[in-house]
Design a protein around this nucleic acid. Sequence first.
DNA 1: TATTGTTATACTCTATAACTATA
DNA 2: TATAGTTATAGAGTATAACAATA
Lengths: 168, 168
Amino acid sequence: MTPDAPHLDPEQLAAYFALTDVGSLLQYAVEQQLREDGDLSSVQFQIIARLTGAPSGRLRMTDLADGIVYSRSGLTYQVGVLEKAGLVVRGTGPDDERTVVVSLTAAGRDRFFQVLPGHVEVVRRLLVDPLDRSDLATLRSLMDRVLTHMRAAPPRSARPRPPRKPSA
Amino acid sequence: MTPDAPHLDPEQLAAYFALTDVGSLLQYAVEQQLREDGDLSSVQFQIIARLTGAPSGRLRMTDLADGIVYSRSGLTYQVGVLEKAGLVVRGTGPDDERTVVVSLTAAGRDRFFQVLPGHVEVVRRLLVDPLDRSDLATLRSLMDRVLTHMRAAPPRSARPRPPRKPSA
DNA sequence: TATTGTTATACTCTATAACTATA
DNA sequence: TATAGTTATAGAGTATAACAATA
């Protein structure tokens, strides 16, 4: 019985493990490729990718932070690394003196396109090749549904915490 | 044109991004939960989980290393942390004097079951709830196919590296 | 007062290479 | 020689809290 105890049946667990295994293997492969081809971490690549896709290659720190990093200081650190590498420059925003606008340099854009082909190839080889077009559409639809649900629900609701027994 | 340039069409990219978004949000949520409920990282949780599932709660270092960590020293570090916390003990293997056998302590088992309900609840809330049973079966089947493909292909084959232009 | 962003600090984690000991 | 594991070391990344400046 134990009707209150949360549990997952083997089918649900298997789906979860399969998803996380794919996720971590894919992430590891991508990280390797980005490091080898362009000396970038995946966070740094994401920042550059966003800037590449932004109008005139500039974004405010706050806009950059969104899905990429979980703390402001983390973003400051990463943008600092990119700036030291000459891939990005920081300047004060025109409207609001508090904001900092991050701009992609020519070197930054070059680096992005230097790394992109290998990145695409890794994704293709590991994820796209083994699935056909309709599989990918299905996968996307499932993941989109999960994302919608995640974003609707409060990220960390008031979950009753079990008693913290020992400390370590 | 550019028939040699690797590329992904928007559908394929969308599937990739949706998958990685779910993966990273899920991973982050799990990491938070494990830390709050039991002061464990996900790597530490995986180690303990494997030991819990092993006969008599013991495994050799080498066996533990498999899917969890990408370097031997990384495993040594994590097992060291767990040992300091009293969740695990190390001993010399009975057959081969070179091997180290890691054994789960009673406290380690307690910690696992202390953390498990919250873990299950996060997975259910974020992944299982928004999908029905047949969705999960589909997801599992897709991911298993990808995993099979990943494991068949050489992890990092001889991919031609683009010219490393600047250094940073 | 609230918001934007940085800094100081401290900690966790990881990987490489050199090393020890056993097979 | 090969394998199992540890250690030393050094670097990358992260989060929290205190801080400065502007709105």
